[in-house]
């Protein structure tokens, strides 16, 4: 189990969901995010997020609980899994196949 926290936000200009990476960049892919394993590290992520909000790059930054599963990072909560991955239904412009965010967070 590699449970920790990832910092997420919406990019101000287009609203797209982004995640903070180890190099202080914002990625649209949660798998590229930096996973803070300890409260102190998570606190540092939050602080960095606030700085990015002050410079108007992102808005609404917050921490989510997630865990590393191989190369993937999977949020604990269904809401965050859908937010990270996209709608779970086949809509126009969807990735094919649609996200399987309802898959269990913790591999059996």
């Amino acid at each position: 189990m590699a449970l920790g926290h990832v910092l997420t936000a919406n990019r101000l200009s287009d609203g797209i969901v982004v995640f903070l990476t180890a190099t202080s960049a914002w990625s649209e892919k949660i798998d590229e995010a930096v996973l803070a394993r300890e409260p102190l590290a998570a606190g540092a992520l939050e602080k960095r997020g606030a700085e990015f909000e002050d410079t108007n790059l992102v808005t609404g930054a917050y921490l989510i609980e997630a865990e590393r599963q191989g190369d993937a990072i999977v949020p604990t909560h269904v809401r965050e899994r859908i937010r990270a991955c996209g709608p779970t239904i086949a809509y126009l412009g969807a990735q094919t196949p649609p996200c399987q965010a309802d898959a269990p967070a913790v591999a059996a």
């Binding site: 919406n10 287009d14 609203g15 797209i16 969901v17 808005t59 609404g60 809401r79 859908i82 937010r83 996209g86 709608p87």
Partner: peptide, 16 residues
């Protein structure tokens, strides 16, 4: 936020 909401623009789960 109240200004954009008055113009129908929300920030939702995946974006605006």
């Amino acid at each position: 936020k109240p200004l954009r909401l008055m113009n129908g623009l929300y920030l939702q789960l995946h974006g605006y």
